[in-house]
Structures are given as C-alpha cells and as structure tokens.
C-alpha cells in the first residue's frame, strides 16, 4: 500500500515527508514500546504509536522505518518533526485511537505479514 493510501484510510494529516507519498509499505506495527519495535519489526513498515517523543524518531531511524503515524490526534513538538524531516521520514497524525487505526489499515489489506517472525 502506498503512503498516500494510508493517509486516506486513516484520515491522516501529513506533518512532513510529502515526498514519500508514493512509497510502498508492506506491513504495519502498532507499539508504544520502542524496544518491542526494535525486537520484531521487519522491512518497510509503517509505525503507529501513541508515544510522542524524539526517541520514536530515533527508533525509526535505527530500524529504517520511513513512516510514523501518531494516533489519538497527538501532535508532536516541532523538534520531533524537524528530526524526522532531517531523516527523510514521513510523519502523519490521525485522530483515530490505536486500535481503530490498526483495524482500518488491516481491513484495507495491510495484514502485518513480515512484521513478526
């Protein structure tokens, strides 16, 4: 699924990284624990999280994650968006809570294959 489709499915707003909208994502991971993200995530995932701090972007950087979705309408501080921009990532924010956001993506065909071993 392309990132522009993720935006449509989640009614999301793009905060940075418009240049990646035609990038494909294979699966998604919903997590607030960054160590879990680092333990299990595979390639080309979109990370959905309710955690809003710089370490979300750092974790995504280490895992080569290019898309982060902040759920529950959370708006990250400017320095978080700035760091993501520097890393060439796309940051989205959606009003949907984690469960609904994950459910919408799953229903739209992002079934998470490839995230877990």
């Amino acid at each position: 699924m392309k990132i522009r489709e993720v935006i449509r499915v989640l009614d999301a707003v793009v905060l940075t990284g418009e240049e990646n909208l035609d990038m494909d994502i294979n699966s998604a991971c919903g997590a607030d624990l960054m160590s879990d993200v680092m333990a299990y995530v595979k390639e080309n995932v979109v990370l959905l999280t309710g955690l809003v701090n710089l370490q979300v972007v750092r974790t995504a950087e280490m895992m080569d994650i290019k898309v982060i979705v902040f759920v529950r309408g959370k708006n990250p501080e400017e320095k978080i968006v700035d760091l993501a921009r520097e890393m060439g990532m796309t940051i989205l924010t959606t009003k949907h809570p984690m469960f609904i956001a994950c459910g919408k993506l799953y229903s739209a065909g992002v079934t998470g294959r490839g995230v877990w071993d």
């Binding site: 607030d32 624990l33 960054m34 160590s35 879990d36 680092m38 333990a39 999280t49 955690l51 701090n53 370490q55 979300v56 974790t59």
Partner: peptide
C-alpha cells in the same frame, strides 16, 4: 512512559 524500560534492551543487543 517514554517507551523504554520494557526489559528488552540487553536481549535485543545480544540478538
């Protein structure tokens, strides 16, 4: 609350 301290750090490093 900051997303760490789940007890996965050292196991992840080993992995």
């Amino acid at each position: 609350e900051k997303g760490f301290g789940a007890g996965m750090g050292l196991p992840n490093i080993k992995k």
